[in-house]
Design a protein around this nucleic acid. Sequence first.
DNA 1: GATGAATGAGAGTTCATTCAT
DNA 2: TATGAATGAACTCTCATTCAT
Lengths: 205, 205, 205, 205
Amino acid sequence: MEQKQDADQRILKAALKEFSTYGLSGARMERIAKEANINKAMIFYYFSSKEKLYEVVIRKVFSSVYPKMVELISMNPTAEVFLERAVKIYSGIFSRNPDFVKMIMIELIQNPGNITSLMRDLFTENGLTPGPGHLKDLIGKWYRKGEISEGDPFQFMLNLVSLSLLSFLGKPFMEIIFQNPVSDENFEEKRIESVLNLLRRGMLT
Amino acid sequence: MEQKQDADQRILKAALKEFSTYGLSGARMERIAKEANINKAMIFYYFSSKEKLYEVVIRKVFSSVYPKMVELISMNPTAEVFLERAVKIYSGIFSRNPDFVKMIMIELIQNPGNITSLMRDLFTENGLTPGPGHLKDLIGKWYRKGEISEGDPFQFMLNLVSLSLLSFLGKPFMEIIFQNPVSDENFEEKRIESVLNLLRRGMLT
Amino acid sequence: MEQKQDADQRILKAALKEFSTYGLSGARMERIAKEANINKAMIFYYFSSKEKLYEVVIRKVFSSVYPKMVELISMNPTAEVFLERAVKIYSGIFSRNPDFVKMIMIELIQNPGNITSLMRDLFTENGLTPGPGHLKDLIGKWYRKGEISEGDPFQFMLNLVSLSLLSFLGKPFMEIIFQNPVSDENFEEKRIESVLNLLRRGMLT
Amino acid sequence: MEQKQDADQRILKAALKEFSTYGLSGARMERIAKEANINKAMIFYYFSSKEKLYEVVIRKVFSSVYPKMVELISMNPTAEVFLERAVKIYSGIFSRNPDFVKMIMIELIQNPGNITSLMRDLFTENGLTPGPGHLKDLIGKWYRKGEISEGDPFQFMLNLVSLSLLSFLGKPFMEIIFQNPVSDENFEEKRIESVLNLLRRGMLT
DNA sequence: GATGAATGAGAGTTCATTCAT
DNA sequence: TATGAATGAACTCTCATTCAT
């Protein structure tokens, strides 16, 4: 019964896992079908092609991150509030959905242009008004007010995003550098705390 | 002229570009051959299989980053010196060889375990003694001496690496957020400065 | 008409012909596909690989010979009856399916060990109880009773099998020795008669 | 030193082993070269092509069997003497050079026509006079004299050859049927004795 | 004679996609 | 909707053969 209506959802879920593990070209429709417990041909029935399916998955991933940021920005927060909330938004989403980060990263590496146009679509489609222009203004305002020490909005955000994104991808990398496994206990909280601390001390005045 | 004995080197170079652009499964031997200006069969003559070629490339990438860090650590530097040098090492290598970062990231995402064992091999093969144990001690020492505010070596390094690694990958991402292209002019220097500034203020006392 | 559900059977038939004519490595999937009037990829769809297909064919060949011998042995026949029936079983099967002999011979030559394990499987899979142990006892009994002059079961059977197997393969060989073609007319009957005559006179008392 | 002059002999030896194990199409020039401890290109230098090499090997194999039979036939022996000598000739050669049998059998199975013309060449080239026509006459004479019970020269020789050829190939086959290994001890002598006994009792009067 | 590198034709295999039912 | 079978293009890999030295 619930097998019926949510076939496309099962496909999307399986596809996210597959794409984030193997990338677009490495992904196998066969595996997605098996994981989604559905006939392979049905994926084409629902999503037309591998590329289309990939696009839908990517859109879904971005859609899940974007609105929260828009909402935050539209609140006109102080730099301090913004930092805390932004880090928690990113970290929360990514630590709960590591496949999201993986897909975004792979897209970033292999098809950066793809993401650009995809985001543009998201903007125009949803008519999300505050827009990123606002974010630039916001950061400019903080800097002029003396709230932050990094005046370049681009660098400001890149610092924030780098730390948030790689926090969960970088774990295995660190385990290599230190040559022993890192305890999972409270990893998320510890990481958020460290990042927040770094950003506050490093960018707030 | 340079067509002579360096066929395998040309293959490796072409392969790095190909793998970092398309991933393991997306890469095409045909394209690598054409780029290396060589008969396709020769790739197999030299490297046996696509997978083997990939492994050799990955090893080469890692080998090129590792020694510089080992050297730095073995110098027993202060925290301040370490931060500056480490950021410049990472940034320098990666901004000059963006394909490196891409491959490392892809591996990190798709085969973290693969990297682990690969690094282990590098350690033992090269008998590089200072090792990462030393790094942990170093960070501990700085913390006890009051040089740094982040006492967890793991968080300390993750902050450093995240900012260095994503600096160059994140550019397209930022261009999306801000919806207009970022000037390339002096990008590397600006980026290093911002990261260094953030790390100094945020982690040094 | 017969194009329907029997694609795998058509493949097996074509494969037997191909393998028995060209051997494992000389066989061409393309040719098998064309002969079976099917898309080449379907062979892999049904049989995974060339090697797997070969194995299936070999098994089928052996399965077709084995049960009749088991049945004969379990009848507890006299030596005379056994000789006559065995020769006819072998000759009948082989003259009607010369490809069988070819495949068995090729396997015998190139992978004798392969056959051994294959037969072992056939035994255990089918739980065929009378088994060859019984055959050894049977031959022993005939010898003690004075029915036959060859007391070594191994030599006894090797004589029988050699004559039956090579009867149809050896034709071209003979044509060489005698340097002119042998008339096909009643070849099978003549051959069986000669072999039976030889075995009766030579091994019965 | 002895490496010099006998390169072609080493190739032929390696080729016989390779061809008898893998057949013509399964044989690998690479493997032959390695086995002969020589550069692959040299095989082509000496033998032009794989097919040519194969032909040379086959010719060599046949040349080694043929003269002894011719000699025996030209002696105008009695049936009894002929049987004994022929069986010993075949068995001796084949038990000492099992690769010979393998090659002949494979040729017989896969390219019977090939052998035919090859033999024709051998006849004309070497001007081996007694020829097989003589053999037919010989058998006919024995039959008319009442020496033998099988009057058809073709059947007569097929019986003889089948038993001789398969004696050594059939061993693994028998081990399967009896499901336990056959002791190697005196295998050749025992086998010859059994075959001779069978042929004498079965075909001599 | 001898060698390592090179070549090109083709072989086995995979996979997204479509078809028939 | 749903399925198993089918397809064709493309891909990795192999191998006899040749080339340059």
